[in-house]
């Protein structure tokens, strides 16, 4: 067990003082028959230990692709990381040999997926799938590994774990399956957990259980949690910081309270205003006109300009720079002062 840890600690360039996870200028494109889809166009993110960073955006904004690129599980081809860095404690994972990267994965960075039924292997028991990690990464015996699997299921509060360890994924309910996924991700004590829409497929009462469990486990372990979601309710409930994505870019980044109280980017503002609110009962909802852009044909300048109510000539011509409007706040909008109302 200590072997892998020691090996990872000795990777060239590891700096314990460097940020836990840092993504810089990440570009990902998919080369398809219909042209090149630019899914991620220069994403910068940073995750600190014990922190929950929500990556918020609608379908096609590049949030899941960013996560896949960080994990190194992008479908290649058609997906290609064309530029950028993903640094874990200072080491650029994108330039690491696959064998080392595999050790970082699971041991240091793990992921929970949206659809547990398709993420788990249907022909093996959950116990086998959990134990496999201990046998592969920790060289444990079958018996010890199974014992650890039971402990893990217990930690994610699956009732009667000793018996359920021999069940197959289809024998679990949606919520219980998501617990199994979380157990699997946490098996090797990662420092970073990336959760890609972990509760989207679940009912609200089960969603609440799972989010509470994640928050609790995160606190116990001091993990950095990157929560990828489109749900502004979930974000408001658990996140410390938010990165809002649109057309493959982070358009705004801010602490959770600031963003809900006073969004600085026109898209964030429009998104928050489109939530049905009590005072809008009986009146039309605020909507964002038009459609999200096709990734094969992203508008020039600011990608949001065709849908934006603040847009002027400059928005079509020049991509907005990332304005730092407070120590922890960044917004890429030409009219950030107008959006903020200052």
């Amino acid at each position: 067990m200590t072997d892998i840890r020691a090996h990872l600690d000795a990777l060239p360039g590891v700096d314990p003082r460097a940020p836990l996870l840092e993504v810089r200028d990440l570009h990902v494109e998919f080369r398809t028959r219909d042209g090149v889809a630019r899914a991620v166009n220069g994403v910068d993110l940073r995750l600190n230990p014990g922190e929950t960073l929500a990556v918020l955006g609608e379908s096609g904004c590049g949030k899941s692709v960013t996560a896949q690129a960080i994990m190194g599980i992008l479908d290649t081809p058609p997906g290609h990381v064309t530029r950028g860095e993903v640094r874990y404690r200072g080491v650029d994972l994108l330039r690491l040999p696959e064998a080392d990267r595999r050790k970082v994965r699971a041991n240091r960075i793990a992921m929970v997926f949206q659809d547990a039924l398709s993420a788990l292997n249907p022909v093996y028991t959950v116990g086998f799938q959990l134990a496999e990690q201990f046998r592969m990464h920790r060289g444990m015996s079958r018996k010890d590994a199974k014992q650890r699997a039971v402990e893990l299921l217990d930690q994610v509060r699956i009732p009667d774990a000793r018996r359920r360890v021999d069940d197959y994924p289809h024998q679990f309910s949606g919520g219980m399956r998501q617990r199994v996924m979380i157990a699997m991700a946490l098996a090797l004590d990662p420092e970073v957990l990336i959760a890609d829409e972990p509760t989207t497929a679940l009912d609200v009462t089960v969603q609440a259980q799972i989010m509470n469990l994640l928050a609790e486990l995160q606190q116990q372990r001091g993990m950095g949690l990157m929560l990828i979601t489109h749900d502004m309710g979930v974000v408001a409930t658990v996140a410390d910081r938010i990165a809002v994505m649109y057309a493959g870019k982070v358009v705004e980044e801010a602490p959770v309270h600031d963003i809900y109280a006073r969004p600085a980017h026109a898209y964030t503002q429009a998104l928050l205003e489109s939530i049905p609110r009590l005072d809008l009962k009986g009146r039309p909802l605020n909507v964002i006109r038009g459609l999200p852009p096709a990734l094969t044909d992203i508008p020039s300048g600011c990608a949001f300009h065709p849908r934006c109510t603040y847009a002027r000539e400059i928005c079509r011509l020049e991509p907005p720079p990332a304005y730092r409007i407070a120590p922890q706040r960044i917004a890429s909008c030409h009219f950030v002062r107008e959006v903020l109302g200052v």
Binding site: V206, A208, A236
Partner: peptide
């Protein structure tokens, strides 16, 4: 139901249902 207002965090009386 998660409420899109971070100010309510920790101030809501959340009922956790057990099981499925």
């Amino acid at each position: 139901v998660p409420v899109p207002d971070p100010r309510l965090r920790g101030h809501r009386d959340q009922i956790m249902l057990e099981g499925d």
